[in-house]
């Protein structure tokens, strides 16, 4: 099953590695972008099946991006998972409360990342 995954992170290196890790699953079509603002417009246009959102980003952070995604009709129902370096339980609960379908902790295991994401779909 082919799925479109949009990976949003301000760190270029991590974006690149994550894209490579996700592409280990041949069913994934991956695109990435480096800011929440870019993600909102790209998602409206590309209509991904799942958006992976970094939490700590300059200007527009993960939760703000999620709110913006929910606010626009094209992405109002798109599943969003957070990917974060602050993956403590209270952080996880807070993020889950915002309407995310999953939390992936950084640093992630690149060899199992695709499987984790597949489980969220």
């Amino acid at each position: 099953m082919t799925a479109r995954i949009l990976y949003v992170d301000d760190e270029d290196d991590i974006r690149e590695i994550a894209a490579m890790a996700l592409e280990l699953d041949p069913g994934f079509l991956v695109r990435d972008c480096g800011s929440g603002r870019a993600a909102v417009s790209l998602a409206a246009e590309w209509k991904p099946d799942l958006i992976l959102l970094d939490v700590m980003m300059p200007e527009m952070d993960g939760p703000a991006t999620l709110a913006a995604l929910r606010a626009q009709a094209e992405t109002a129902d798109t599943p969003v998972a957070f990917i974060t370096a602050r993956a403590g339980r209270d952080d996880a609960e807070r993020l889950a409360g915002l309407g995310a379908c999953g939390i992936i902790a950084k640093p992630f295991d690149p060899m199992t990342l695709a499987a984790q994401v597949r489980a969220l779909l």
Binding site: E11, D13, I14, I17, M20, A85, K106, P107, P110
Partner: peptide
């Protein structure tokens, strides 16, 4: 954690 994500990720791949 941020640079570690890149390092561990690259090496893991």
């Amino acid at each position: 954690r941020t640079p570690l994500t890149s390092i561990a990720g690259s090496l893991g791949l």
